[in-house]
Every structure is written in structure tokens, then in C-alpha cells.
Amino acid sequence: MNKIFLALALLLTVGFSVAYWKMGGFKAAVVTQETTAQPYFVAGRYYEGPAQDEAFGDLTREAYNLRKAGKLRGDFSNIFYNSPESSRDSARVFVGVLVADTTSQQLPTGYQYRTFPAGQRVLHARIQASYLLAPDKLYSGVKDAAEAQKLTLQHVYLEHFPEQGEPEVLAVVQ
């Protein structure tokens, strides 16, 4: 009986390890220092409150459903206005969809545009991984790069989760 449990545990461990590997769990974020060349436009809604609050999840689901239904064209995106460490307690975030411009589509009721401006110095982190694993790896990559390059983070972050391509975070630095 113990051999069966041991074999099952080993099989599950190998299975989870392979799934984690396939999702990009063993990859590290690639981080470069850049200046944003063009503005990024996000259509969405602002949220301030506990990150675990259902209202935050509702905004995320709403943006996903509007994009899926074709009422907003673009990729899921957020602009965070506080650090990822403190956002676990209290998030200040604009939740929505990264759009090409502010004139080509009508916004759903209650939605507005926010701009992540051009000309900002940023740490640009990218990773070839599932959007489920990407945020922690992207933010830890940004934090490590900022420390290594002795840069000060301004705690403004643009998250971008394209349907095709690499998830990315742009973190404003001084």
C-alpha cells in the first residue's frame, strides 16, 4: 500500500513539474531599461480597495467579457498606481483593455481612457510564460533589475497580457 502511495506521489510530482515547465515556470523575465516611444491607451475602470475584494475581480471579469464579446478590441491590461507588494492589501489600479487609440471604438458605459505616457523611463520586463505565472516573475524581475541598476521605482506599472505574445510589465523609474 505504501509503495502505491509513493508511486502516486512521484507520478503527481512529475506531472506537476512538467505542467509548470510547459507554462514557463522555470523561465526568468527579460528586463531592459527603455524610454517609452509612444503612449499606451487603456480603456477601463478605476478600482481602489483591497486586492482580494470581489469588486476588483468583478472589474477584471467585466473587462475580459467585454473584450471576448468584441465590445472592446485590444488586450487585457492594467495600470497599477502602487507597488505590487502593497497592492496585496490595498490596490489602486485601472483595470481594462489596452487599445490602439482613443477614437476608433465606442467605450462601454462607465468606461474611460487612461494614458501611460510616452517619454517615460521604464524597466520593461517580458517573459515567455502563461499569464497565470507571469505577474510574479515579471515583478520580481523588475525589482531585481532596479536594485542591480540602482534605480528608484515610481510605483506606476503597466501590465499587458496579449492574447498572442509575451506578457509584459513596464515599470516607471526615476
Rank of each mutant, 00 (worst) to 15 (best):
V42D: 07
F41Y: 15
A37C: 07
A55D: 13
A19I: 06
G24Q: 04
P50V: 11
D53P: 00
Q52C: 07
M23Q: 12
M23A: 14
D53V: 10
Y20S: 06
V18R: 01
Q33C: 00
Y40D: 11
T35A: 11
A29N: 05
F26A: 09
A43T: 09
V31W: 01
A43G: 06
Y40F: 15
Q52R: 11
K27V: 07
P50D: 14
V31H: 02
Y47L: 13
Y47C: 12
T35C: 03
E34V: 15
E48S: 14
V31Y: 02
V18C: 07
Q38P: 00
V42K: 02
R45N: 01
Y20C: 06
G25A: 06
Y47T: 09
P50K: 13
A55K: 09
G24R: 04
R45S: 05
T35W: 01
T36V: 12
F41H: 13
P39K: 04
E34L: 13
A28P: 00
W21N: 10
A43K: 06
Y47G: 06
F26T: 14
M23C: 02
G25M: 06
P50E: 15
A37G: 10
Q38A: 13
Q33M: 10
G24P: 00
V18M: 07
Y47N: 10
T36G: 05
A43V: 10
A37W: 03
D53T: 07
V18G: 03
Y47R: 11
T32I: 14
T32R: 12
A28L: 07
E54G: 07
K22D: 11
F26V: 14
A29Q: 03
P50R: 12
